[in-house]
């Protein structure tokens, strides 16, 4: 690789030949990629292309059939499925976060908004009640939820507010890597735009890396630096997001980019 000028910093995540089989059927096949700190990678493809399967493997939810996923949580690259279970759980709790498409999957619906945020801080080792409440209040403001709603339960919130709360719950522990599965999936277009801008600013200001699965090319263009295009479990094209979208080479990517209305 002609990579002599890349910044000296190290990869945050390295994925080698990851394959996930479901019996005979392949979820994803021989996927390799690298992610550096602060970088946002998009994964696009139609439903059934394997993008969510890949995300589940990468996020530590579902082990791959073959291949390695290595993450640097400060001690060099370690295979996330080879480390002891408690270490992996600890890594998942503190070093990375997952934003689910459905906020109910990422929130504790029975506890208050403030409690949802406090829980992550307590997981991380914070014990000072006053400080926890102050940080939680600050985060509610950052995601544009009135701090007066701190003691309300998430089920009293609209879908867009629940999604913003979930994002705050993930980002509050300052993860190094965030996984997002269709983060704007079930939302109105106007709410989507607001959420996307919020995500863009937060990710840039915090310098965290993110992997975003989406089927929406406009979302990919707005949020991501690089793009992987998946079809039938395989990566068929990858590169800078604008390169892949503006000068697609693979027949499938050409079909995908010509099939959408201009955004």
């Amino acid at each position: 690789m002609n990579n002599q000028l890349s910044a000296p910093e190290k990869e945050l995540l390295r994925v080698e030949d990851v394959t996930r089989l479901y019996g005979e059927r392949a979820g994803c096949l021989d996927v390799s990629l690298s992610l550096w700190p602060g970088e946002i990678l998009g994964i696009v493809g139609e439903s059934g292309s394997g993008k969510s399967t890949l995300l589940r493997c990468l996020a530590g939810i579902d082990p791959p059939t073959r291949g390695h996923i290595m993450f640097d949580s400060g001690k060099g690259l370690l295979d996330i499925y080879a480390v002891a279970e408690p270490d992996r759980r600890n890594m998942m709790r503190t070093a990375w976060g997952i934003v689910h498409q459905n906020p109910r999957d990422g929130l504790r619906m029975a506890i208050s908004a403030g409690g949802n945020l406090a829980e992550r801080l307590i997981d991380r080792g914070d014990r000072h009640y006053g400080r926890i409440r102050e940080v939680a209040r600050d985060w509610l403001q950052r995601v544009e939820i009135d701090p007066a709603r701190m003691d309300d339960k998430p089920r009293a919130f609209s879908g867009g507010m629940q999604q913003r709360l979930q994002i705050a719950r993930v980002l509050i522990s300052e993860p190094r890597l965030v996984f997002m599965d269709e983060p704007t999936g079930g939302l109105d277009v106007s709410v989507q735009a607001r959420l996307l801008d919020l995500l863009r600013v937060l990710v840039r200001d915090l310098g965290i890396a993110a992997i975003i699965v989406t089927h929406d090319l406009a979302v990919a263009r707005l949020l991501t630096d690089r793009l992987l295009v998946m079809k039938e479990g395989r990566v068929v094209e990858h590169g800078l997001t604008d390169q892949v979208l503006d000068d697609p080479h693979h027949p499938y990517t050409q079909l995908l980019t010509s099939a959408v209305l201009a955004a």
Binding site: M1, N2, N3, L5, S6, A7, W36, E39, A193, R194, L196, D197, R200, L222, D225, R226, G239, L240, Q243
Partner: peptide, 25 residues
């Protein structure tokens, strides 16, 4: 060059000016 090097080059060394602004909400 690697995609991330190209991103770095765009950040520091080269800019593109079209007649259209890509508006961010």
């Amino acid at each position: 060059t690697a995609p991330r090097t190209l991103l770095e080059i765009r950040r520091k060394s080269i800019g593109f000016v079209s007649q259209f602004l890509r508006v961010i909400p």
